[in-house]
């Protein structure tokens, strides 16, 4: 099963930092996501994309996780030479993770 099957995500950018929300379709899957989708797992999954630290925030009131990934946007939207300079497509990279 892929994360895509049970959760959705939106990517955001602040400078060279990428933010990825992770929101289960069924709120009862939140506990599973908390257990399985650790900072290390996300860092490893995104591989060469995220060069810096990954920090996970838990938001139990809205049954959602937030991953803040540093040094992930090739200097950031204004000077990046990436095709997707904002990193907007990267929400769906996270959802490719097998769980």
């Amino acid at each position: 099963m892929k994360l895509y099957d049970i959760a959705h995500s939106r990517a955001g950018d602040k400078g060279n930092t990428l933010t990825l929300s992770l929101i289960p379709y069924q709120e009862q899957d939140y506990a599973l996501l908390c257990e399985k989708i650790t900072e290390e797992k996300v860092k490893q999954h995104l591989g060469e994309i995220v060069k810096g630290k990954v920090t996970r925030y838990e938001l139990p009131n809205i049954s959602s996780l937030l991953f803040v990934c540093e040094d992930a946007l090739n200097t950031g939207v204004t000077t990046s030479w990436n095709m997707d300079a904002h990193g907007k497509t990267l929400s769906y990279a996270l959802l490719e993770m097998e769980i």
Partner: peptide
């Protein structure tokens, strides 16, 4: 809905605290 609101609430947030 709850999902559109959740996606937007966390959009571009680097520290929700």
């Amino acid at each position: 809905n709850l999902d559109t609101a959740k996606e937007q609430l966390l959009y571009e947030v680097v520290n929700p605290h």
